[in-house]
Design a protein around this nucleic acid. Sequence first.
DNA 1: GCCAACGTTGGC
DNA 2: GCCAACGTTGGC
Length: 159
Amino acid sequence: MPATRFWLMKSEPDEFSIDDLVAARPQTTAWFGVRNYQARNFMREMQVGDRALFYHSSCPAPGIAGVVRVSRLAYPDATQFDPASDYYDAQATRESPRWWNVDVELVRKTRFVPIAQMRADPALANMVTLRRGNRLSITPVTAAEWKAVERLTAQPLRP
DNA sequence: GCCAACGTTGGC
DNA sequence: GCCAACGTTGGC
């Protein structure tokens, strides 16, 4: 059994935001479009029931916007086969897919936690996504970091 | 717009 | 296999 049960998954809100997931019926989405091998490998490690922080990236207000739950194990990302898709990969074949994605379902939209507030929390000092130079769109989160984030989402900003 | 950091590509 | 060049990510 893998040790990691918690993850952080980045989405650009212009592409797909927490509000898009809230509005979806059902409140679930395929996490397609990941084109980095490390991030792909993390998705292939995920189990149904794993939890993930829904993070808004590459936007005016980066930070944590919600919590999701893995609802389907990794399966081939359909967009790699679609020549009309931005995510098309000419080298991928149905027999030998290169890119995979899980499905996630909404657990809840949280109070927004800006990246500055994450950086200010000593409990998150070693969080992978906050490390200098880290660009991975999917990263593991420790149980302690998960709890610290839950505290931040539950509490209003201090003066 | 800037820039640091990292991944990928391709010549050799 | 090395490594320089280039492209991308993503916070600021």
